[in-house]
């Protein structure tokens, strides 16, 4: 019996020991990640990374700047403001859930110790609605984007500062899961997120320039010409997964929330500039 157990115990020790020994801290990851992009794009100023592909695509940028003169997301901001100010059926407002609102975008995503999960802004909005007897909004398309657009607009200029609290190992676990997701090859085409947006950022895929991962999270919700409307970050995740021919995960499910947690953390220090406009 003991003879049989010993190799198992040894194997377990090696298995559990290895990742511990090789795992970098989030702070180390952050430095490595950001330095990688600074080195890859030495001419791009730090704040410029918040402009995504337009930081590295001078031709696309001209078009984009023209679009930003009359932003297509503007009506959504206005609609979101109405939503923010309108009372729920019970007479309460969003403000009762978010006393610091509406400029609260930089507070998310955040680790919620009581719930033991990453809470994103769209999730917090629906939690608020449910607590006040309102129907939750859909997470990819529709009205939630208007409210998010208003909040994002009010939060412009705030800086990304995601915190991975040290007092709860589950927060680090969620971060690690999101990180693993980012570098995992998926789908029939066998792409990881990093294949396109780290390894080949700045390269052309057909006639499109691949945007750098750094800055991916600063400008949501985003009006995409391809969508003809404003959509959420998780809608974009869904699209990316489909493009590599993987089955997408649920918007606001654990995988995408953890992914958002990791990816937003990687952009720590960049200014928030949502809502955005993209091709």
């Amino acid at each position: 019996m003991r003879q049989k157990l010993l190799p198992i115990i040894t194997a377990l020790a090696i298995l559990s020991g290895l990742p511990m020994a090789s795992a970098a801290s989030p702070e180390q990851d952050l430095k490595k990640f950001q330095n990688y992009f600074k080195k890859k794009f030495p001419k791009v100023k730090w704040e410029e990374f918040a402009n995504g592909v337009y930081a590295v695509d001078p031709i696309g940028r001209e078009n984009w700047e023209a679009i930003e003169e009359f932003p297509p997301y503007e009506p959504f901001i206005d609609e979101g403001e109405e939503m923010w100010n309108k009372a729920f059926a019970n007479g309460k407002h969003y403000k009762d859930c978010f006393p610091d609102g509406p400029a609260i975008a930089a507070k998310y995503p955040r680790w919620d110790k009581a719930k033991g999960m990453v809470v994103t802004l769209p999730l917090a909005i629906n939690n608020c609605r449910k607590a006040n007897g309102e129907k939750p909004l859909k997470y990819k398309k529709g009205k939630i984007n208007s409210l998010l657009a208003y909040i994002a607009f009010q939060s412009r200029g705030q800086k990304t500062h995601v915190v991975i609290p040290k007092d709860d190992p589950r927060a680090l676990e969620a971060y690690e899961k999101g990180k693993k997701f980012y570098f995992t090859k998926r789908g029939q085409l066998n792409f990881s997120c990093a294949n396109c947006h780290v390894q080949n950022a700045g390269n052309k895929i057909r006639s499109d320039i691949l945007s750098p991962a750094l800055g991916h999270t600063t400008h949501w919700p985003t009006y995409r010409s391809k969508w003809g409307t404003v959509g959420t970050l998780h809608r974009r995740f869904t699209g990316c997964n489909k493009q590599v021919r993987a089955k997408p995960f649920k918007a606001q499910g654990e995988q995408y929330r953890d992914l958002e947690y990791f990816l937003t953390y990687m952009s720590n220090g960049l200014p928030l500039n949502g809502p955005g406009a993209r091709k």
Binding site: Q188, L189, N190, F191, S192, A194, N195, C196
Partner: peptide
């Protein structure tokens, strides 16, 4: 192992 090129045969693309 981290090439961007899809495995056209192995994944039956």
């Amino acid at each position: 192992p981290i090439t961007m090129m899809p495995p056209f045969g192995r994944h039956k693309i």
